[in-house]
Design a protein around this nucleic acid. Structure first.
Lengths: 165, 165
DNA sequence: CGGCATTAGTTGCATCTTGAAGTTTCAACC
DNA sequence: GGTTGAAACTTCAAGATGCAACTAATGCCG
């Protein structure tokens, strides 16, 4: 890129390399995750995350908008996904007794089963692609850096992710 | 997740936090990039990357399949995108004189102009979300970790990205 | 109470992506 | 030199996403 716009702070060679690595990861990794899950479990990554987050709630349930924060997706996207999962019998949507605007997504038994069936292969894959690809030290550094990015992307930071120890 | 499958090495708490941070980034950051570029330049991130990579070639041109490696996207996806860019007059596809199977994507003047117009805002945004969000040291660590991931995701490693210095 | 802004969620539409299948060209092999 | 296999692309149908518009319920404020 040319540097004829004095007002813009272009990236240094090092910064550019880092950005390219991240940019490439954003294009490549989701495709790899989707492919494995789709092939082995008939789910895409986002669907998996939605069910996984539900499964970690004490009662396997969460209102739609809270769920959308937890999975970091738009409410619109979540609504579509939950509709699909509901059609497969993986999830149910109940009304909320105290606030009739709220719909509570509830993981069904079949959804739990699908999750349990998909989890080992998925974890295996994640381990292979990320966790086992580097030393614990480097993994911690990765988390540290990504948390700073997430803080910029979503300043509200309703992230469930805790600070590194 | 339950640990009743002895054969699976589940993630430790630390590993899980790191994976969640990455997973969340994969969902969140592309949306942020697309939103800015779409709003300010009428391009999505992938379209931008395609034109940017073309612009960095000596002759502003590259065969489709080589381009698809450089941008790390599938050939099918690239074909669709280039067709759109061609319809806007941003790119042209020429035949290759020595191998008639090959189509060479060529960045047009209008595409170059669009890129030059979009770049400052995009770089600004990338700086804000990633580069300026952390210290140079941490940025280097981020790159180091992501390169290891990329090595697993695409073992062929036709990446143009060089090793950290 | 009556209106007004806000919150929760869904949906329609236009766009994008993917995966499979098809075309054309080249290379290799006997 | 024909056949077979692979490579380079494109295309099409099916599914996924985002945005904006919409409904509906709640909260608030005078």
């Amino acid at each position: 890129m040319s540097d004829d716009t004095p007002g813009t702070r272009w990236l240094s060679a090092d910064e550019r390399q880092s950005w390219l690595a991240l940019s490439r990861t954003l294009i490549t990794l989701p495709a790899a995750l989707d492919a494995q899950l789709q092939r082995d479990a008939g789910l895409n990554h986002f669907e998996y995350v939605v069910m996984a987050m539900l499964s970690e709630q004490p009662d396997h349930a969460l209102p739609m908008s809270q769920l959308s924060s937890v999975v970091a997706g738009s409410l619109s996207r979540l609504s579509n996904v939950v509709k699909r999962l509901e059609a497969r019998g993986y999830v149910r949507r109940d009304g909320h007794p105290e606030d009739r605007r709220v719909k509570v997504a509830h993981l069904e038994e079949a959804g739990w089963q699908a999750l349990v069936a998909a989890a080992p292969g998925h974890v295996e894959h994640v381990r292979h692609l990320v966790i086992d690809a580097m030393r614990p030290r480097e993994l911690a550094q990765l988390r540290n850096a990504l948390l700073k990015v997430l803080d910029r992307v979503d300043p509200e930071g309703r992230s469930v992710i805790t600070e590194p120890t």
